[in-house]
Design a protein around this nucleic acid. Structure first.
Lengths: 131, 131
DNA sequence: CGCGAAGTACGATGAGTCTCGTACATTCGC
DNA sequence: GCGAATGTACGAGACTCATCGTACTTCGCG
């Protein structure tokens, strides 16, 4: 159909993020409760700033990865912005810290500690590239 | 009934808790991600020690409450012990603190803050010291 | 303009779980 | 022993979510 009205197509170039006070603790916790998303957040934390969507070695397909990024964004954990053909991601450290002081840091620290301990067990969890 | 087979009956008087190193961060996060369970943990934290299963004002049925307590226990967040006809619950502060230092405290603090902020929206603005 | 790259959307599927009601087990008090 | 109180187990229903494949859009480049 040559109709240019873009009935259903047309990816929205503008992404909606929740405002700071719209962020709910349960949502953040839920977002962080998934191993894949936890890994993403871990990488984002080390990247500290900008990161494309495809630098993760998560054992999931591209669609699933997109899904997880969306969950993270809609729950207020990260921000996303288009940059040409890529999309830059960043942690919302400031908002999270203002809302739930110490929480992000505690989770991140716990995740790293557990990942380090878990590696010793021999599981091939493909832990997010610990530089 | 003298029948000793008890096919389906027989509540186990002994409860299984995960050992300290069997506690997984994702499980704890997942357990805490539910509003009902978060409320339970909040009450347990203030009770600091002993608490029966039926002192919570959660808007769910008794069965559901039992289910949530089970989840909390099996994910290593609380311990449970029988005491006559009641069952005492307690937070596993020590284990959690040893495994994920600062995490429980951060979550609890964040939960209280958010609860206080949420109350202000409808009830008597009890927001204590909003910076 | 055509092609490759990056990401998204949609639908489907399977698993997990939140909720409930009801029936049952256990303990306490009389 | 009987009844009340507390809590559990089981099964069912509805819902969410994680995962995938495929088709599509948009951008950048030559």
């Amino acid at each position: 159909m040559p109709a240019t009205s873009t009935p259903s197509g047309g990816a929205p170039r503008v992404l909606g993020h929740p405002s700071r006070d719209a962020i709910r603790l349960e949502d953040v916790l839920h977002a962080l409760a998934d191993p894949v998303r936890l890994g993403i957040v871990l990488v984002l934390d080390e990247a500290e700033g900008e990161c494309s969507c495809s630098v993760f070695d998560a054992p999931v397909s591209k669609s699933t990865l997109t899904h997880h990024f969306r969950v993270l964004r809609e729950h207020g954990v990260i921000t996303q912005a288009y940059r040409g053909t890529a999309k830059m991601n960043a942690l919302r450290r400031d908002d999270l810290e203002a809302l739930f002081p110490g929480l992000l840091d505690a989770v991140l620290t716990a995740a790293r500690r557990q990942a380090a301990a878990g590696l010793g067990a021999g599981a091939g969890a493909a832990a997010t590239g610990r530089a």
